[in-house]
């Protein structure tokens, strides 16, 4: 195994020390600080951006909340308005109804009065007819005119008896 040739140990160790020391110097002095700097810068930048995004998000959230509140307010306003309108309409309708009813009632009672009047008239007419008919019939049957007063009395009596 060539690896166990002791004569080759010294040059390998020496050159390992030289090259590794060089590498360490280059990396520790040049490369690593550079990478660290870039990484840090980016981390800061990302943190900044994230912070900004977060504040924007909060702003948007607040705007949304305000919008929602306004919307809710508007909605309840509309509700109240609608209710008021509704009540007013109902009131109006009720008033109209009442008026109409009164009118109808008036008309009905008028009609009733007229009917009553007509009934009375009709009754008088019938009575008059009955009186005339009764006097004529009586005169024809017994040749005696009982006169208006007696006839009326007889008719009233008969009516009262519920013929």
């Amino acid at each position: 195994m060539p690896q166990l040739d002791f004569a080759d140990f010294a040059p390998q160790i020496v050159w390992l020390i030289i090259t590794f020391a060089l590498l360490y110097a280059v990396l520790a002095r040049l490369v690593l600080p550079r990478i660290a700097e870039v990484l840090e810068e980016r981390q800061d930048r990302i943190a900044d951006d994230l912070e900004q995004a977060e504040s924007l998000r909060k702003e948007a959230q607040a705007a949304l909340e305000a919008y929602e509140a306004a919307l809710n307010e508007a909605r309840s306003d509309a509700h109240i308005t609608a209710q008021v309108a509704h009540a007013k309409l109902a009131e109006e309708a009720a008033a109209q109804n009442e008026e109409l009813e009164a009118k109808i009632n008036a008309q009905a009672s008028e009609a009733e009065a007229r009917i009553n009047e007509m009934r009375v008239q009709a009754r008088d007419e019938i009575r008059k007819l009955a009186r005339t008919a009764a006097r004529q019939v009586t005169a024809r049957l017994i040749g005696l005119d009982p006169g208006d007063a007696a006839t009326d009395a007889a008719i009233d009596r008969r009516l009262k008896e519920g013929v």
Partner: peptide
């Protein structure tokens, strides 16, 4: 969209 943004953030 806001929820989505939040999630992505």
């Amino acid at each position: 969209s806001l929820k989505d943004f939040e999630k992505r953030l």
